[in-house]
Design a protein around this nucleic acid. Structure first.
Lengths: 254, 254
DNA sequence: CGCTCTGTCCCAGATGTTTGAACAACTGTT
DNA sequence: AACAGTTGTTCAAACATCTGGGACAGAGCG
């Protein structure tokens, strides 16, 4: 699954190494980047000037930064996901009605990518923004997705990315994960009890297409003090499921 | 200004040619892409497999597509624009209060990039999504920005991108543009009277920082039948200006 | 079953990329 | 005002890498 290119174009790899470094450093000069990447600065300069010429990178008084042309590509990629257009208005409603943070996640390359995030009036502040990629087994959203994949696909994903836990409560063995996924299938919803971020709980439901294939998941997340008792175990799950069902209907007829 | 790299990395250029083609074709196979680009398919395959390995491209049953990793980069690039975080809530309010489509645009590489777009309840459907890049002189937003740039910078941009008009009413000479920009400075707001899209009018105001440098522009746009008379010439301009002023205050104190 | 599409792989030759060193342009310090 | 220590940029030679034709396997179809 984690296929490596047979005949990789090394310059393409380097190009993205440069871009990634530019992102990690939040903008940088040639020398700084060169040191960070351990590549001669003349080489780095060649890449940066090429990227600038192509308008993928911008030079603001001496500091190179990731350009907005990626927003064009990124927005396009999101727009291409049929789930986005259909689920967005419903997730907006979910956020408005619960007052919390509502999310859409899809799987790509065995990881979860946040497609969209809607803020209700009481929504918590989380640093992660749209586009952030997370390991599937560490979030309610991811578990909702894994629960509806074939065993082989789950195996392939676990083989590729492991079960490295970000917090103490995370799932750490394949058996544990299988048990959890079975629970998710039984209940219809997945929970996240501060597994990825302390003090943050989350309720997620899968979104399936007419062939019962998983195409993504939606969720509400909020602080533990508002996510407890009946609201956490009954009220919110029902709400999220209802919204997921509406989305599924719209996916089918489109 | 339109500097070309002295020592361009051709493979980096090719990488983005491939990605652009993938976007234009809305996903494609190796052979189709190779024909479109007039490059041997083995070469195209090398690039695609490298991009897939790096998780920037995804292969969905035989069709290569632009991946969501670009959403990560794009969302990051947008987040890095300080204007976005500050202006977003205000533009949301502008959309809600007018019921129309409200926008944020910034300049990059001499073109306009839509940073954000908020839809009011009566907002028109336009195909352009976030990230779309447009020539500055063809939109109210762009004219609001150009009006507050130095003459040299405007010259450089016109030299680089020309004044090619997308519709009949567009500005087509440098003198005409200068006149228009002077008007914008006088009035404080810029108008777009179906210049770029038929039936669509637009009112835009610049956003300046404390040093009176232009950092972007905001606007409301809608159908000509709702954008006429006093509403178009008085009411909406005042509203847009007011919101721009609030944003400017928030920009200064942050 | 054979035909014609795919996508993938391979390797030698051609080409582009890498690289250190040298330079120019700044910044801040003495 | 001169200087030392930065920075980004340029260049051309040495060589690593990309290119590209052709061969191959597998899928889809009649």
């Amino acid at each position: 699954m984690a296929k490596t290119a047979q005949n990789p174009v090394k310059s393409a790899e380097t190009t993205f190494e440069v871009l990634d470094a530019l992102k990690d450093l939040d903008g940088a000069g040639v020398t700084e980047l060169a040191q960070h990447l351990d590549i001669p600065k003349s080489t780095v300069h060649n890449y940066l000037s090429t990227l600038e010429q192509e308008e993928y990178v911008v030079n603001r008084d001496g500091v190179y930064e990731v350009g907005l042309r990626f927003l064009e590509l990124g927005a396009y990629a999101r727009h291409r996901e049929k789930l986005f257009g259909i689920a967005k208005p419903e997730v907006d409603r979910l956020a408005a009605e619960t007052g919390e943070l509502a999310n859409i996640l899809v799987e790509e390359h065995g990881r979860g990518s946040y497609l969209y995030r809607a803020r209700g009036d009481k929504a918590v502040q989380v640093k992660a923004h749209v586009g952030t990629r997370v390991p599937l087994h560490t979030t309610a959203l991811g578990k909702a997705i894994l629960a509806h994949m074939s065993t082989e696909r789950v195996d392939a994903i676990v083989d590729r990315h492991g079960l490295g836990g970000e917090a103490s409560k995370s799932i750490s063995s394949r058996a544990e994960l299988e048990q959890e996924l079975a629970d998710v299938r039984d209940r219809g919803v997945a929970f996240d009890d501060e597994e990825r971020l302390e003090g943050l709980r989350c309720v997620a439901a899968p979104v399936l297409n007419h062939d019962n294939e998983i195409i993504g998941a939606i969720s509400v997340s909020g602080p533990t003090n508002r996510f407890r008792g009946d609201r956490f175990r009954e009220e919110l799950p029902q709400k999220v499921l209802e919204v997921a069902n509406v989305i599924e209907l719209n996916v089918t007829y489109s």
